[in-house]
């Protein structure tokens, strides 16, 4: 079952992600995808993630598609203007790649080409509106398309952002702009997540809880300190600290979290963060 079908049939959706290589050798990416075959409904393909230049997302999506995977085409606004983004989206659709996830993107100065020019001709809300336009048969300038793409339009949200209310208002804009499903930033507190999820689903969109498996207390502390919108509760850090096998503990924490929120959301998005091999174990532990 692919992502679109899972979401529309009410099946608990499972997604994960792969990163395109720096270079032309896609074998490792395909190997990572292979171990998830049958376990996930779709694989996100990141777009020059963290502003680090890699093989193009669209090409990576095509490779995955050819290998029989359902891909989620992540589109950021950092590197391309509205012409380039639209033409790439049309290109993707022409290959049958129809899951898109619209993001603004990390700033260029945090990546490996900090001197490059940031584009940001669009940002996520405007991109979502344009994707909806394309789906309706017209480009952003109102010109008619010959051959109309079909997209399942997604976006991201950070339920633990601080401050939260501006983030929530932005989320609502994305909903109004046409996003139908959301993958969230990594969340750890079931209570706060489910209250957000309940509100969000009330607006008629699907919510996939983002999870990142914690492999050590140090990693948890690092994320709390450095990654915006991530709040690992102290109790979990203590648990990892006390553990003899923190990786296993981390997997258990993730599985427990998924169990706790499963009935309150529409799926889960497992971010590997450099440990793709752990994803099957997480899914096993969560019974997915």
């Amino acid at each position: 079952m692919n992502l679109h079908d899972a979401l529309s049939s009410g099946t608990f959706a499972v997604t994960s992600e792969v990163g395109p290589p720096k270079g032309t050798d896609v074998s490792e990416m395909l190997a990572s995808a292979e171990i998830l075959r049958g376990r996930v409904h779709a694989l996100n393909v990141t777009d020059n993630q963290a502003a680090v230049m890699r093989l193009c997302t669209l090409a990576a999506c095509i490779h995955l598609k050819n290998a029989g995977h359902d891909a989620v085409y992540q589109v950021t606004c950092r590197d391309r203007n509205r012409l380039a983004m639209q033409s790439d989206l049309l290109g993707a659709a022409s290959f049958g790649i129809t899951n898109v996830l619209a993001l603004t993107g990390d700033h260029i100065v945090v990546g490996d080409h900090p001197a490059a020019k940031s584009v940001f001709d669009y940002e996520s809300v405007q991109l979502l509106e344009t994707i909806v336009d394309l789906k309706g048969g017209r480009d952003a300038a109102g010109n008619e398309l010959h051959g109309v793409p079909d997209f399942t339009i997604g976006a991201v949200v950070t339920p633990d952002a601080k401050p939260f209310r501006p983030q929530l208002a932005k989320f609502e804009k994305k909903v109004r702009a046409g996003a139908t499903y959301f993958q969230t930033q990594a969340v750890y507190d079931p209570e706060s997540f489910t209250s957000f999820s309940a509100y969000a689903r009330g607006l008629g969109v699907k919510i996939l809880a983002g999870v990142v498996v914690l492999r050590s207390a140090g990693m948890a502390r690092f994320m709390n300190k450095n990654i915006p919108g991530i709040e690992v509760p102290q109790a979990l850090i203590d648990q990892l600290e006390a553990s003899n096998d923190p990786v296993q503990t981390g997997i258990e924490i993730t599985a427990r979290f998924i169990e706790q929120v499963r009935s309150e959301c529409d799926g889960v998005h497992v971010m590997a963060v450099g440990a793709e091999h752990l994803v099957p174990r997480i899914l096993d532990a969560a019974g997915l």
Partner: peptide, 26 residues
């Protein structure tokens, strides 16, 4: 930093821009 016209991005941390050098405009 990104010239966003419709609200904060996900990079805002405790009201600070992800570049860390200014408050989040949004």
């Amino acid at each position: 930093a990104k010239g966003i016209l419709n609200g904060p991005c996900g990079g805002v941390k405790d009201g600070t821009c992800e570049l860390g050098d200014r408050p989040c405009a949004w």
